[in-house]
Design a protein around this nucleic acid. Structure first.
Lengths: 252, 252
DNA sequence: CGTAGAATTGAACAAGGTCAACTTACGTGG
DNA sequence: CCACGTAAGTTGACCTTGTTCAATTCTACG
């Protein structure tokens, strides 16, 4: 699944170069895929890692486990994403990357990638693009963690996952698979599992969305948008394609 | 101020290429500097911007203002940092970048930078490095916002600023200038100004650090480290160079 | 069936937020 | 050099959001 033309590119004229870079990386990765089972560690905390990955299928998360047991899921990778790019350049933090579901990945070794990076500007562009895209997502995420309340954060997550999955072709009209447990959502959103549960119930009773048994059903996308609006990625804002009017009784 | 050899590079063999890329960018920027006064907007929210900046002197922040008045300072740039790199590639979010103090910056136009990017792998490497470095910082920051309490966040901020300023040569043995108002700190840390004030008072009375009148005095760096430890960048962990024993009475 | 992970719910609690007043620092004009 | 005005910093009283602790129910699956 290469680039979609609806990618949030500043300069559409880069699209060709990006697709070329992407194809070159894909080609260099060959078709030897590694498989991981749910829960497996893909990149260990602290261990050196000499490859960059492309997620082919499944969900993967970048996690940090603090000494006292607190946990944070910093990023969720979906099919098509490159990950491990940062360790191509920088010393690694004590992060681990592990499979949230059974997953398959393609890999390329750092030294091989660096050769490509130096000889093919389009590959360098593709790498820089991935880093920029990650950063953009992190920026939104920081706003959410810093300034959004629990309901806004959850709405933001649901809307973002919906958008990203739709862009890689997974979207059943507002229904999509989501393998995260409530504990994982909590670690992703900076909340507790108990509170996530309560807010999800509230979203359900208010008719905005139902999250259960690994499936998200969005009943009222405009409503979720309205709820998440203050902290929504600008790229998601333009897509309240279906659903009724927003009916969330915001206390604020 | 080019790269320091104590930079958190995964592969020291990249250092030469990075310094070369940095020098090329610097050269292409020439010596025409733009000056901004405290409070000036350097990149407007939403407006297209066709340049990348290097901060030469002063403090600059990337900010997002939400519709309802909530504000978030997502990144603080210090002298030597490149910023606006992301907009080289991606559509911009409604962020603004503005001067936290009087500042001077050097600039390079996107089209010029792209030429360099394509012809000089070392420039591409320098750009990718900056993006990776930003991402790394955001990762830590996300942990802090998601899982650290107020005192931990503040300690993290003080330690990180100390480390970054020391690396560009600004460090008076634990005393450094910090032009942030308490409101700005609050917007940076995801707290309220009132609570920042209270925690700063507590840090002061416990003898860890004094923050006032634009100056931070760290009295007990190991103590701050201990407090921030769970959420501290690994690159900062190795530098409790001075001070007494940690004396923070953590309630947890 | 039995069991383990996940979800759900209640009750008590605490961290941090809100509101509002007051003080200090500092730049400017008289 | 002083008076004043404004932005920043402080502090208290009270409140809300989200946490903690502790059961209790699902649900999938061997």
């Amino acid at each position: 699944m290469p680039f979609r033309s609806n990618f949030p590119l500043h300069r559409p004229e880069l699209l060709n170069a990006l697709e070329r870079g992407d194809a070159l990386i894909t080609k260099a990765m060959g078709d030897q895929r590694k498989r991981f089972k749910k829960g497996d560690e893909i990149i260990g905390s602290g261990e050196p890692c000499d490859t960059v990955f492309r997620l082919e299928s499944g969900w993967v998360g970048r996690t940090r486990l603090l000494d006292d047991g607190r946990r944070s899921i910093m990023t969720i990778f979906l099919p098509g994403d490159l990950f491990g790019v940062k360790s191509f350049l920088l010393t690694e933090q004590p992060d681990s990357v592990h499979a949230l579901t059974n997953s398959t990945v393609l890999t390329i070794r750092h030294d091989r990638l660096r050769e490509l990076f130096e000889t093919e500007p389009s590959v360098a562009l593709r790498i820089a693009f991935q880093l920029g895209e990650d950063e953009r997502r992190l920026h939104n995420y920081v706003i959410g963690l810093g300034r959004a309340n629990a309901a806004e954060r959850i709405a933001m997550m649901l809307v973002e996952l919906h958008g990203r999955l739709a862009r890689v072709g997974i979207d059943g009209n507002g229904t999509y698979p989501c393998p995260l447990t409530q504990e994982e959502m909590a670690d992703f959103l900076g909340l507790t599992l108990v509170h996530v549960n309560r807010v999800l119930r509230r979203l359900r009773t208010e008719g905005l969305a139902t999250v259960s048994r690994g499936v998200v059903q969005i009943h009222d996308l405009p409503g979720l948008h309205k709820l998440a609006q203050p902290v929504l990625d600008i790229f998601e804002r333009s897509r309240p394609e279906f659903g009724g009017g927003g009916g969330w009784s915001q206390s604020a």
